[in-house]
């Protein structure tokens, strides 16, 4: 399958002009190769991390904050954005569905294309939205999946919606039941 132009391509993060630079990482460490060569972690004013641990506390006033889960971080981020002022830049590193989730939250609070930058170093597994029943099937590894909602055999297209944060799946054997192409693993 040829890559479609709607499928996100990610550039390594570089710092634009801004008053405050906030880096959000899904994980305790920043994977290698996420930052442009001219950028180091010290360039960010704040770093927020999802560390997957129930006992951490985001320390007030600290430049580095730890969160228990993606939801835990998102709640704090929304609270922060509701009173933020112009000049903030947000950078997000993580799985594809995580970075587009954070992106959508930021846009809800008025950040635009130049104010949020996302980078998904591993985007092998896909979140898929069924064109017919609209259910989501998550963590799809291959081009052919069974829809969690209606049970249809879906072909996962390379067509990605930032609005739904999902790839599109449609019933591949609609015309001839049971005629399904070979399932292929996604390249990351």
């Amino acid at each position: 399958m040829d890559a479609m132009i709607s499928r996100p391509r990610y550039d390594r993060l570089s710092l634009g002009l801004g008053r405050t630079h906030l880096l959000i990482i899904q994980g305790s460490e920043l994977p290698l190769g996420c930052l442009a060569s001219s950028v180091t972690l010290d360039d960010f004013d704040e770093i927020w991390k999802v560390v997957s641990c129930s006992s951490v506390l985001p320390e007030p006033g600290s430049a580095e904050k730890q969160f228990r889960s993606a939801n835990h971080l998102t709640i704090a981020l929304c609270h922060r954005l509701s009173s933020e002022t112009m000049g903030l830049r947000v950078y997000v590193v993580g799985e594809e569905s995580f970075v587009w989730d954070i992106n959508a939250q930021c846009r809800r609070f008025g950040l635009g294309n130049d104010e949020i930058h996302v980078f998904a170093p591993y985007h092998g597994a896909r979140r898929v939205r069924c064109a017919h029943c609209r259910a989501y099937t998550t963590n799809c590894q291959n081009t052919i999946v069974t829809c969690d909602g209606c049970g249809a055999t879906l072909l996962v297209r390379d067509h990605f919606s930032r609005f739904w944060n999902a790839y599109q799946g449609f019933q591949i054997d609609s015309e001839e039941p049971g005629v399904v192409p070979e399932s292929v693993a996604f390249r990351s």
Binding site: L17, T20, M86, G87, R89, G112, N113, D114
Partner: peptide, 10 residues
Amino acid sequence: AHELGYPSSN
């Protein structure tokens, strides 16, 4: 505006 971090699209 630029100095305060307003993107040019704003």
